[in-house]
């Protein structure tokens, strides 16, 4: 059972940072994961009094407070439109509405869980993690950083024009994904993210430039490029086995989901 000695609802991020320097301290997110563990927490730090539970939209970006619930993220209309429905698709399978009302964006991102749909999705956008001490770091960098004792304050999604698509394969509708895939045309960049490999989400990369100039391609060219890139991804994304599926099956899914998400991004087919 989770044990907590002190609970402090902080008045500022600075206070949270200060308290969090102790190894046995812990910043609370939505508690849906934390409460399952057997941790002994000396000081539980609650950020819920700092108004960090909303999404602000500016000309340049969406600023998502770390305490924003997954449900708030899912139901944000502007973000929904901006992501062509991908953000909602990445969230709606996560357990249930009540769960998503509790779980926070900050908790989901900070934990960098292997099964995370949210992390997979946000990696496909121009997303930055904003820390109290470390400042703004591209999410793609943060995802591979070592854990430290900094405080995640906001998630910022820059409004770089994007076409994107999100798909996941699950054994049942509200289960963890067996594989998750997000594809995006981010300005001129093509980005493909695979999550639940079952390891942590990763950006696949396109060193051969298979998808280069995707925007300018004809549908026929796109189809050929997508097929070839799907093969590339299947060859290069490390997958593993767990009780939900084998590495072999996951690799097969990489190919299928990469193709399907890119077909959707290319506006060619989106009916699976």
């Amino acid at each position: 059972m989770l044990k907590i000695r002190n609970y402090i609802k902080v008045k500022s991020i600075a206070e949270a940072y200060e308290l969090n320097q102790k190894k046995t301290a812990c910043i609370l997110g939505g508690m849906v994961w934390l409460k399952m563990g057997n941790r002994n927490i000396s000081t539980a730090i609650d950020l819920s009094g700092l108004g960090l539970d909303t999404i602000q939209e500016t000309e340049e970006e969406f600023i998502i407070g770390c305490m924003t619930s997954l449900r708030t993220l899912e139901t944000n209309q502007a973000l929904h439109e901006f992501s062509h429905g991908a953000v909602k698709e990445s969230l709606r399978h996560i357990v249930g509405v009540q769960f998503r009302n509790c779980a926070t964006v900050g908790g989901s991102i900070y934990g960098r869980y292997g099964f995370s749909d949210v992390l997979t999705m946000l990696l496909a956008l121009d997303t930055w993690a904003e820390f109290y001490e470390g400042g703004k770091i591209p999410l793609s960098e943060f995802v591979n950083m070592k854990k430290n004792r900094d405080v995640l304050v906001n998630i910022r999604i820059r409004k770089t024009p994007v076409f994107c698509s999100y798909r996941s394969q699950r054994n049942s509708e509200t289960d963890f994904p067996v594989l998750a895939c997000a594809a995006s045309l981010l300005g001129e960049e093509t980005r493909t993210v695979i999550g639940a490999r079952p390891g942590r989400a990763m950006i696949v990369g396109d060193p051969l430039g298979i998808l280069k100039n995707f925007r300018e391609m004809t549908n026929k060219q796109r189809a050929a490029a997508i097929a070839s890139y799907a093969e590339y991804a299947a060859d290069h994304v490390p997958t593993g086995s767990n009780m939900r599926a084998s590495a072999e099956y996951r690799t097969m899914l990489v190919k299928v989901l990469v193709r399907r998400t890119w077909e959707a991004v290319g506006g060619m087919k989106n009916e699976y």
Partner: peptide
């Protein structure tokens, strides 16, 4: 808002 009372610290009801 519907929430899971199993996942919320009592002190957070404040």
């Amino acid at each position: 808002t519907p929430v899971l009372s199993c996942s919320i610290l009592a002190v957070r009801a404040e």
